[in-house]
Amino acid sequence: MSTTEEKVKAPKEPLFSKKNKRLITDPLSDNNPITIQVLGICSALAITVQVEQAFWMSVSVIFVMVFGNLIVSLLRNLIPSRVRIIVQLVIVASLVIIVNECLQAFVPDVSEKLSVFVGLIITNCIIMGRFEAFAMSNKPFPSILDAVGNAIGYAWILVLVALIREVFGSGKIWGAAIFGNNLPGEESGLYALGYVNNNMMILPPMALIVVGVIIWIQRTRNKDLVEEH
């Protein structure tokens, strides 16, 4: 019980040190939660039929993730490790309820389309994964950065997949027709030339294939990602 012992203070890190920057940039490409860790695939398949849905889903996930990571990180020394999963679940569930209420209040039609998938953010593997892997053992500020990085890494893949699927599956971007009118009998634009929307793009298997192609391109560009076998 020596009172002379001085607390060794770690040298203060700059707010956006190299390490902190990497927390944001890594998940965007080389450690992307969807294409590299292959987490959160369920929602990438389910709600990427239209860009609008994917966008609001992404916004919801970013919100839940940032605040969830922050809260878990603040509480990390108070949470008994034996019940940590339950505590994390309570936190993420409360945040999801807030998001759901907001969506219902401000964008009711989108909320209707997303239906159960907003509630299912609770079970999104990325969120619980970041709580466990990062927020439980890091300070609040890096936790926020980690959350922003991972959530945006998730979001841009989601929106990209949705863009491809909406353009080729329904010939629209954010609900606006881009190839012309495809009502039978009054076709215009590309449809008048015999173009037909690709129905398979709307089916979930195609989302899996699109994600697979993105992974393929990513691995071709960065050979370090390819596992040895």
């Binding site: 690709n198 129905n199 398979m200 793009m201």
Partner: peptide, 10 residues
Amino acid sequence: AFLFFAYPTA
């Protein structure tokens, strides 16, 4: 199979 699911009318 691709055609069958993508363009069922054809």
